[in-house]
Design a protein around this nucleic acid. Structure first.
Lengths: 150, 150
DNA sequence: GCAAAAACACTAACATGTTAGTAGTATTGC
DNA sequence: GCAATACTACTAACATGTTAGTGTTTTTGC
């Protein structure tokens, strides 16, 4: 019993496909992160701060694709877990600078190794040329989406 | 101030890229759905049931990429909103069959039209050949991920 | 036949996502 | 100068995601 032609959605569902692919990948990677007591989002924040150095919350939000309201909670929990420190700017009391603690930097060393190994294993299984095609296609999609107007 | 070579993650982050692309797309489509009083997940469930007919929760979960515990809440809210009905199988009291209400079927007609229009607009903006490349690349990625063993 | 195992939907506890709005601070326009 | 505006992080309220575990019903193994 399926829908009549008039109510069926005709195009394929691109957001859904991207969601499914991401979930399939995270099924493999998430356990590596949670094994160290971190959530997926906490790891994204740590990784961003490790690569870019201390940043302000809204910048971290952009890089990690985590909304500002979610980020408030994530950072609060990370601060109480002593994964990050926060300090207000002297010149602008609205702004905050978030930095990694030594604990986090140590975690990066350990977890990165694990992730690298599993990533290479995945690339081998799927085939590097397919992974590369995904990167290029989605990069181009994003570029198309971010173009102004028209 | 960026990380030393020894702690930098070397490979690109595929799950992150997929997340970002999905979010960019949903920025455009989500308002069309919430304008009708539905959440993104509720729309996924309605759409799946509309295309496949009445289904059991775990099957809906698979199709919509919503975990079973999340699905319990989603369906409970949808039932109280009179978007779906649930009935237990007579032969197997563990199982439940979920069906759309007339309200939902009507919603599909309206929302689908909106989505179709916006989807075509997006495809035009991004370029159909790029969209097609994303479909093919991610399809292949998923196929590679789902292969057994080795 | 019946005890053990599996299947199914669900609950519990907590983290995060989404939307709207707030408090405090800095900037702008005049 | 100062009122209006904008900016930044945050809170509030609710829906969903994640992991572990529960209650009930079927199925399996013997």
């Amino acid at each position: 019993m399926s829908a009549s032609a008039s109510t069926r959605v005709l195009h394929r569902n691109l957001p859904m496909l991207l969601l499914r692919a991401r979930e399939k990948m995270m099924e493999r990677f998430r356990p590596l992160i949670t094994a160290h007591g971190l959530t997926e989002q906490q790891w994204r924040v740590i990784r961003a701060l490790n690569e870019h150095g201390p940043m302000e919350p809204r910048h971290i939000s952009d890089i990690c694709t985590i909304s500002s309201p979610s980020m408030a909670g994530v950072l609060a929990r990370m601060e109480s877990m002593e994964l990050v420190t926060k300090e207000r700017f002297a010149e602008d009391q609205r702004r905050v600078l978030v930095s990694l603690t030594e604990t986090s930097v140590d975690l990066v060393r350990v977890i990165s190794k694990d992730l690298e190994a599993h990533y290479r294993e995945l690339e081998r299984k799927v085939g590097p040329e397919i992974v590369e095609r995904v990167y290029r296609a989605v990069d181009d999609l994003l570029a198309g989406l971010e173009e102004e107007g028209e």
